[in-house]
Design a protein around this nucleic acid. Structure first.
Length: 241
DNA sequence: TACCAGGTCCTCG
DNA sequence: CGAGGACATGGT
């Protein structure tokens, strides 16, 4: 078994299923973790907005913003189109960078409405490559945010690379790439099955597990003593604990 | 108190 | 290109 496969196995055995992406059940206001097989329109939009809100921000702060948006029934292309940027910024304040993020959300909605008639399914019908290109046209959506949307809202198999992913594999495998796409290619090539591409569920789970591991153990200042993967970790052996 | 969090864009050199 | 800065709240 490849190292990145056994790392997944160890993480899953330790943390079990993460149920990403957290989404609000219809009628409620707070997002919950509970891998849904099917997402309502409203929930897909919530994931897109959530992906923007969580840029360089802890999820707890994003949750408060999502609750506000839910209470105001704003997760619809029409409502988000109508609301003033300043008003939106106020509602998402807890997520930080709120002025920028309000503009980013508006940019996303404008693009969706102008080019896809406000229909996320129409956008998500694009092939992965085209969908990614489309999302990257929007000012405020970078590669990680685009891939999160593709993986968790459109439910297509892409490997999301975030700060945790890079940090964890730099330490665990001495892995280091300059470009985001090089990181992503590494995982997608090495996690490909013989029969074809890996399942979306697997990439979704792997990314979520890495976040959990990165938050609890492989922090910026890592807790190597507590780490259940330190056996073959070069960073641990080098005493960078 | 200082540091960190599920990044992205813009501006320089 | 690629480094460096701006954006900002809330938790530890």
């Amino acid at each position: 078994m490849k190292k990145i496969e056994s790392i997944y196995k160890d993480l899953f055995e330790k943390y079990s299923r993460q149920g990403w992406w957290p989404v609000t059940e219809l009628g409620n206001t707070e997002p919950t973790y509970n891998s849904r097989k099917h997402l309502a329109e409203k929930q897909k939009l919530e994931i897109c907005i959530g992906a923007i809100l969580t840029q360089n921000t802890s999820w707890k702060n994003v949750e408060k913003a999502i609750v506000n948006l839910n209470k105001n029934k704003l997760f619809s292309p029409e409502k988000l189109n109508e609301i003033k940027t300043e008003k939106l910024a106020e509602l998402i304040k807890s997520s930080g960078y709120y002025n920028q993020k309000a503009v980013k959300i508006k940019n996303f909605i404008k693009h969706l409405n102008a080019n896809f008639g406000g229909d996320l399914n129409l956008l998500f019908n694009l092939k992965i490559k085209d969908l990614r290109k489309e999302l990257l046209k929007i000012n405020g959506i970078g590669k990680e945010t685009a891939d999160s949307i593709i993986l968790y809202a459109a439910k297509k198999p892409v490997f999301v690379v975030d700060a945790y992913t890079k940090r964890i594999f730099e330490r665990l495998l001495n892995l280091k790439f300059r470009e985001y796409d090089d990181w992503q290619n590494f995982f997608e090539k090495n996690l490909k099955k013989e029969g074809g591409i890996q399942k979306q569920e697997f990439f979704a789970e792997y990314h979520a597990l890495l976040v959990e591991f990165g938050k609890n153990i492989c922090r910026k200042k890592p807790l190597c003593q507590k780490c259940f993967l330190n056996k073959n970790c070069p960073s641990f052996e080098n005493k960078i604990t």
